[in-house]
Amino acid sequence: MSTTEVLHHHHKHCDELFADAEAAGLHGDWAASAASFARFRDELLAHFATEEQVLFPAFEAATGMTGGPTQMMRFEHAQMRELIEQMEAALDQRGREAFAGAAETLLMLMQQHNMKEENILYPMCNRTLADTVDVAAGLRQRLEEACPVSA
């Protein structure tokens, strides 16, 4: 198993949680969508935290590259956090259109971001880090912090 494989799989898991949250929101089932949205948000934010606190610093230390791909990925994480907040605000106000618009934008950004990571950044990390960091443990720890009940 490569260094980043767990993150690769976790992208797919987050996609599924996103689809559930979006569908519930668009059907106007606000109670269900609040629950499924919270699951999606916690998993996605734990994913970002693992990358920003575990993977990227290790990559930057190993390569000396601090201004390139990892900086771009951090910027996109910030964009996605903003869209998550917009979805959350729309949920609170039960604004179906605002929720759908923020969800559509987040999905496009998230998919593009994931492909860049999976095609470019993760292979670079796998080559330079070669199992010197335990990304899976990092992700597990952050997921436990995010949702202690389910962990």
């Binding site: 903003e82 869209l83 259109e97 605002a98 759908a100 618009g101 923020a102 559509e104 934008t105």
Partner: peptide
């Protein structure tokens, strides 16, 4: 930047 939020895709 992250200060001025553009309209979402559906707008």
């Amino acid at each position: 930047g992250l200060t001025v939020l553009p309209p979402n895709m559906k707008q």
